[in-house]
Computed example of a mutant assay.
Amino acid sequence: MTPPPDAAVERFRATFRRLRPTDREAPVVVAVSGGADSLALLLLVHGEIGAGCLAATVDHGLRPEAAQEAAYVAGLCAGRGISHVTLRDALPDRAGATANVSARARALRYRLLETYRARAGAAWIATAHHADDQVETLVMRLNRGAGVGGLAGIRETNGCVIRPLLEWRRDTLAGIVAAAGWEAVEDPSNSDERYDRARLRASLGGVDWLDREQVAFSAHNLAAADEALDWAADDLFARQCRGDAAGVSYVWRAAPRELQWRLVARCVRAVAPESAPGKAALVRTALALLRGERVTVADVLCSVRRMPQEDGGIAALWRFERAPPRRSH
């Protein structure tokens, strides 16, 4: 059972340590499906932190082979002295027009992993998303007209989730697994053309001019730009928005469109913390307010009032309050 090459270990160590700025002594849960990507991640994490590596395989119950694959991963882990658990629960019900099977499975997977992370006293969950996944994600989002946030692609960090392989190619990871003497599990859904990502993967497979690592780096740069815009929106909200018992007010000042909808998002969440309107709804709300219109989004009434200024001028005051209850007929 050959360990990963020294060069791969050093490359991985630099990213892995950067993504764990705190709690470096705490265990890390590694999400392992049995595919080459996740097995390579498991080998690299285990090589770096030893017994602190906790492998977890989620059986979504969608394929009869899943239980056997989980048992196979458990056997590989046992052979290397790696702690392993299989996590199972019922797939959540469909909720909303876009809650397809893939989305529901993803929601279940992260919920089970987070529950296990907390129970095991681990600080982080590591997943094996890599550069090829990033390219596929960016192309899919380009086709959907995504903005800066969407084109940031798969983030390196999201709460307790870290993704240290976003600059690694699929072939490189497969080579690490092969060198270790392990055989990866092939998920048939990866080549099932009923899925958008599988069709795109097949199309991109023959493209030789696309530098996937550089595309992944572009996504990293866009994520940094998105973070900067969020920072600016937070600063604008803190300096220019005022809250009271009834809601939030903002004396409008000219701002780029990307900041307008982000500011609306913060005002809406300040009034209704449980709300989670999508970007499209927030953009429409900002445009309506710029036209001086009243609009309701996520149970928050957004309106524009005229506010006299000391210099005799009139300013537009954007006002956000809880919408009154709807009348029942």
Rank of each mutant, 00 (worst) to 15 (best):
V304Y: 06
D211R: 15
A224Q: 14
L19A: 04
L43C: 11
A95I: 03
L263Y: 01
A97S: 11
A298G: 02
A105V: 11
R294C: 12
R106L: 07
A315M: 01
P277I: 09
G81F: 04
V28G: 08
M1R: 02
D93M: 05
D208G: 05
T157Y: 02
D211P: 12
H46L: 06
D211Y: 06
R194H: 13
G52V: 09
A70G: 15
L287H: 10
P4T: 04
L113H: 10
R305I: 00
S83D: 09
P3Y: 02
V148T: 08
S203D: 07
F12S: 00
P273K: 11
A95K: 04
V251P: 02
S203K: 09
C77Q: 05
R266H: 03
R111C: 00
G47T: 15
L138D: 04
C267I: 02
A66Q: 15
A202I: 11
A7Q: 11
L39N: 05
A26R: 15
A280W: 07
S38F: 07
A128G: 12
D187R: 14
A228E: 07
L259Y: 06
V9Y: 03
V58G: 13
A146C: 09
T127I: 09
I82T: 02
A118D: 08
A178R: 15
E156T: 00
A55M: 03
A323I: 06
A238T: 14
P164I: 02
L210H: 06
R117P: 11
E65R: 03
D196N: 12
D133T: 05
S189D: 14
S328Q: 13
D192F: 10
E136M: 10
P5E: 01
V101Y: 02
A103Y: 05
R63K: 07
E65M: 00
D244V: 00
P308H: 05
G181W: 10
S303Y: 01
V207H: 11
S218A: 12
A316P: 02
Q260V: 04
